[in-house]
Design a protein around this nucleic acid. Sequence first.
DNA 1: TTTATATATCTAAAAATTTAGATATATAAA
DNA 2: TTTATATATCTAAATTTTTAGATATATAAA
Lengths: 100, 100
Amino acid sequence: MNIVEISKVLANQTRVNILKWLKEPEANFPPHQEIDHFDDGVCVGFIQDKTGLSQSTISTYLNSMQNAKLVIPTRHGKWTYYRRNEEVIKAYLKTLEQEL
Amino acid sequence: MNIVEISKVLANQTRVNILKWLKEPEANFPPHQEIDHFDDGVCVGFIQDKTGLSQSTISTYLNSMQNAKLVIPTRHGKWTYYRRNEEVIKAYLKTLEQEL
DNA sequence: TTTATATATCTAAAAATTTAGATATATAAA
DNA sequence: TTTATATATCTAAATTTTTAGATATATAAA
């Protein structure tokens, strides 16, 4: 858990939005077709649609968020679903409280 | 209180260090000559010495931290002292906890 | 097995950040 | 009132981030 690396992720409104949206996938995204739950998160395409940015940009964003361990990817067929990594998010907040 | 603006400040190890050092000026900086307390924080020169970066860089950093309202400057003679703005730091942590 | 679709990676241009030297300004000291 | 010192601002070069088009890869569908 790296404070500066995670802060870099949060230093961009779109990436903050993605993390927020993933808190309540049902409220923020349409239902998936192949899978009837959001247990593994939301597929890249839905996230891309919601941001309005290009596919490659969102893929890059999600990759940086994954590197910082803020999200966890799961592959289902040809889709990749991303969900929040609550443990790391909690650890980040706790560390900020203690050290900052 | 702007999450992205503050996260940008925290996206740099030196700036995070400065905030940490300012939590305990007595432990992290030599005593000031003209003023026998750290109530208004620490002068720019001491902060610069500790980081090893140039005077203009540290001034730029402190300016960005001041714009984000993370620190408060106070002028004493020819020195500018910077201290933490605990209210904004707390508000940032609270907002992150709620929204993130 | 060819085709379509979802996502990742490569590449590169534009924008932002980092960093420091030079200069300006404000104040204190001589 | 000239000089020295502390900090801020200006300028510019180097680096990093942002962003998207092009291409590659993985899987499903036909």
